[in-house]
Design a protein around this nucleic acid. Structure first.
Length: 591
RNA sequence: GGCCACGUGGCGGAGUGGUGACGCAGCGGACUGCAAAUCCGCGAACCCCGGUUCAAUUCCGGGCGUGGCCUCCA
């Protein structure tokens, strides 16, 4: 068939050809993408997010490259397992689906997946599904048998081309439907209804669709007979996608998909806290997600708890963690690895704070180029500033990596280069100190971060400020200025013993101080990164901080420094905290 | 058994026919009252055996190992 001219540099790996191929679309400037979404019989686990996250980036990148992208993710909401679940719980299949669709959507939102254009559901596409099956029956590649309809694999000479297997080698699903089929490898397009099952009217009697047909029908409906990219997990290659391609190509007599893009699977790595090699962190808790058995993650093995994981780690960490690896690789999943990804992210967050300190402006509000062409033009006119030149090189390398089958891991490496370049520039020009007035340098700082923003946008990271930065607990936020003032006072009077006691006392509570040109900054090492989720450590933290303050006041009083002692109590009173000195020690209450 | 991936430093993870990203961890230095952060620097790897080549971690063949699919699975 006639395709639009290929993109000059973008290449995509195609499962069908087992090669990277130049990217040529059906229609010039347009891309249709279909990603197999979940069967919503249960909550999602982290493995379900790999496809959505990488395709979210793929769409962002293709859009950046100038394509108009239409991305479809289906929801399969009719299936044996949904029916089983509904019966177990005494609710309707629709209710089971509703619950798990809500879970799925909230997971997507948390991971920043917001590029999906259509969310078709199988139960909303019954006429299209039935019409599709009729087409296959008319063409003689499907047959009715006792109210079921089966695809006749023997009629499709191409059957097996995607997963590279022969009909003879296939066992088929066996089971009770075996004798209704001509060949064991024939698969159901339509299943006759058993009593009490949800069903739809059809030319073959009441029933419901088989597993694979909904994707053929929905992709046809929303993307056409031939579309550009079909995605899904590697485990879907056979039988799901093999059957899809058979159905669609027999119905249309045309290629279904130009590029089959399959993401690698997640493995549950043993909880081995091998971050940092030999030194094991003592007391590291075991992985919180299910049993730490090795092997592919799947719901049938009890994988789950994604919502909990997101609440604990934050969506951006998980997204960044997934993007560090090329999408076709197997990823070993464990929480320490996500935390390592988080450490990398923190360096970027700190740079964004530097920007605010130096300029008073907000990184997240920066406007960056949204198209490759526009940005290419800007770079061509770039100045001779070496930092900007280095940044331009990073951008080129980043784009080359993305051009090479969406190599997000390589792209992220360039982001870290850009991080160092920018920090160095800020250091060299003292932009948090005297350099603040150097408008040319400040403009360069902004330009560097604008490039960082441009690239981060492609990966869908650094879109919004992480909620937890600076702490979410009100009382903590009120107490810290007092603590910092006390320490500043001690430092001013060269009373470093007290100053160090304050900082050393904060460390075990999980609060870190940084002395900056403009004052002391504080942050918590909380692992909670998402808005809406309260920090589980907050109250313990506040309690420990109060004990520290009480101790400082006791020390001051013991040293006859009653001024400091009174300052502590008075400032606490302003915050709403009352101290009571009792025989057994000082107690505090928050009114 | 068949089909498909993969095997890179202490760990994670890019890439390449010839000077081996990047991150984490470690070490040294600058900065700091001390730190933190930041910057600079250092050490450290291409599973094994053949072949092609002036030259292979990179290409080809074989072996070993790991993972996935062949039943539901993102």
């Amino acid at each position: 068939m006639n395709l639009a001219p290929a993109h000059p540099s973008l290449r995509i790996y195609n499962t069908l050809s087992k090669r990277k191929e130049p990217f040529a679309t059906v229609q010039a400037g347009k891309v249709g993408i279909y990603l197999c979404g979940p069967t919503v019989y249960d909550k999602a686990h982290i493995g379900h997010m790999v496809g959505p996250v990488i395709f979210d980036c793929i769409k962002r990148y293709l859009t950046y490259c100038g394509y108009k992208v239409n991305w479809v993710v289906n929801i399969t909401d009719v299936d044996d397992k949904l029916i089983k679940k509904a019966n177990e719980r005494g609710i309707s299949m629709l209710d089971v689906a509703k619950e798990n669709v809500a879970d799925y959507n909230s997971n997507l939102t948390a991971l920043g997946v917001d590029q999906i254009d259509h969310f078709p559901r199988a139960t909303d596409c019954m006429p299209e599904i039935i019409g599709f099956i009729e087409c296959l029956v008319e063409r003689g590649v499907a047959y009715e048998s006792e109210g079921d309809v089966y695809f006749d694999v023997g009629k499709d000479s191409d059957y097996g081309k995607l997963s590279n297997r022969s009909i003879e080698s296939l066992q088929g699903e066996g089971g009770s439907t075996g004798e209704r089929k001509k060949h064991p490898a024939d698969f159901a397009l339509w299943k006759s209804a058993k009593p009490g099952e949800p069903s739809w009217e059809s030319p073959w009697g009441n029933g419901r669709p088989g597993w694979h047909i909904e994707c053929s029908a929905m992709s046809k409906k929303l993307l056409g007979d031939t579309f550009d990219i079909h995605g899904g997990g590697l485990d879907l290659v056979f039988p799901h996608h093999e059957n899809e391609i058979a159905q669609s190509e027999c119905c249309h007599n045309a290629p279904m998909v130009l590029y089959w893009a399959h993401n690698g699977l997640l493995r549950a790595g043993a909880a081995a806290a091998k971050i940092g090699g030999r030194t094991e962190k003592p007391g590291e808790p075991a992985a919180a997600t299910g049993d730490a058995v090795s092997g592919k993650m799947s719901r049938s093995k009890g994988a789950g708890g994604l919502a909990t994981l997101i609440e604990k780690q934050g969506g951006e960490r998980i997204r960044f963690f997934l993007l560090r690896t090329h999408y076709r690789s197997t990823v070993l999943f464990n929480e320490p690895a996500i935390e390592e990804a988080g450490i990398g992210l923190e360096s970027f967050y700190r740079l964004f704070k530097r920007y605010t300190r130096a300029t008073g402006k907000d990184f997240y509000a920066l406007k960056s180029p949204t198209s490759r062409e526009a940005s290419d033009g800007l770079v061509a006119s770039a100045t001779s500033d070496p930092a900007l030149q280095s940044a331009a090189r990073c951008r080129e390398n980043f784009i080359s990596a993305m051009d090479d089958d969406f190599n997000t891991g390589g792209a992220i490496g360039e982001l870290f280069e850009l991080l160092t370049i920018t920090n160095k520039f800020v250091d060299d020009h003292n932009l948090e100190g005297d350099g603040k007035t150097n408008t040319a340098a400040v403009a360069t700082f902004t330009a560097l971060l604008t490039t960082l923003k441009e690239l981060a946008n492609i990966l869908g990271i650094f879109l919004h400020a992480p909620a937890s930065a600076g702490g979410t607990d009100d009382l903590l936020t009120k107490l810290m200025p007092l603590v910092i003032d006390l320490r500043a006072n001690a430092r001013k009077t060269k009373n470093f013993a007290v100053a160090d006691k304050i900082r050393d006392g904060l460390a075990p509570i999980g609060i870190v101080l940084e002395d900056r040109a403009g004052g002391t900054e504080w942050s918590t090492n909380s692992t909670s990164g998402e808005s809406g989720s309260s920090d589980p450590d907050a109250s313990a933290r506040t309690g420990a901080l109060m004990q520290l303050l009480i101790q400082l006041r006791a020390d001051a009083r013991a040293a006859k420094d009653f001024a400091t002692g009174d300052t502590i109590r008075n400032r606490l009173t302003e915050i709403g905290i009352t101290l009571e000195d009792r025989a057994g020690g000082t107690e505090w209450t928050n009114t």
